[in-house]
Computed example of a mutant assay.
Amino acid sequence: MATLYSSVLDEIGRRIVDGDPAADTALTLEGIGQEFGVSRTVAREVVQVLVSLGLVESRRRTGVRVLGATHWDVMDPAVLRWRLASVERRRVVHELSEFRLAVEPTAVALAARHATDAQREELRDLAARMEETGSRGELAAFLEHDVAFHRLLLQASGNLQFARMAGMVEEVLRGRTDHDLMPPEPKPEARRLHQMVADAVAEGQPQLAESAMATLCAEVLTEMSDPPA
């Protein structure tokens, strides 16, 4: 049941994000049940999650109605995943890269001040692993180290709001790889900047850490601004 529920939720979520059904379209539990062959209970659970994500609203008299993008919980990992799977994925990554540029440099500056000794050591280890796997073109392994690196940086900031962004950053990183928005081999400059961030945090240099992360985020933003090859 959990697998069936998840597949129905993913399918309807992706459709709404893709604009079909469009905003103001009415949905019914009966219609969902008939199309996907699920019970009314499963259909209701799917709608409840969609309501919590801002993709639909459910009212006693008007029923279930699809909502426009301004209502979506765009920071939720599920909504991010659906948006990154849409035809607008490049624009979405660009938008999220702008957000990262505004936030991550500040977070790493805080990490340089507040990280524990264990976190500082782990960051350097992850940066070294990124260099190893990246230089060999092992994109899957590089991605896992990259996700862990950014998650740890946000946690090491000591700020719970930044730490909660880890899921969003992970979806962006995975989405770039899954949808072929990453180069076949991570660029040497990007790997070098990750190492600079790790070293600056490890050595307690917030300004250097902030500058290196700003450069890294700006490079990603520039890549997303360029037309696809």
Rank of each mutant, 00 (worst) to 15 (best):
L9D: 15
D180P: 09
L154S: 03
T116E: 14
R129K: 14
D117W: 07
V197F: 02
L80Q: 10
R61G: 08
G31C: 00
T106D: 14
N159F: 05
V108P: 05
A190F: 08
D125R: 15
E171P: 02
W82D: 06
T106K: 12
P105Y: 00
R59S: 10
L181G: 11
R124M: 10
L55S: 01
A69C: 10
L152P: 03
T28W: 06
V220K: 06
E57G: 05
P227Y: 08
L126Q: 10
T70F: 08
R124I: 05
G33P: 01
A102K: 12
L181V: 04
T3N: 14
E122C: 06
N159Y: 04
S225D: 12
E223T: 10
D76T: 03
R59M: 10
V201A: 01
V197L: 06
L50D: 05
A229M: 13
L9K: 13
L29C: 07
V79Y: 04
A166T: 08
V51T: 01
P186I: 05
R191S: 00
L181C: 09
V172K: 07
Q34G: 09
Q161H: 13
E132L: 15
V93T: 10
R89P: 02
R129V: 03
A115C: 08
R120L: 04
A214C: 12
E144R: 11
A214G: 15
V103R: 07
R192I: 02
R120D: 00
S58K: 06
S52G: 12
V108Y: 01
P188V: 05
A102R: 14
G13A: 05
G19W: 00
R81G: 04
T25N: 06
R191Q: 11
D20T: 10
L143V: 10
R90K: 14
H114N: 14
F99M: 13
A156N: 04
A229R: 15
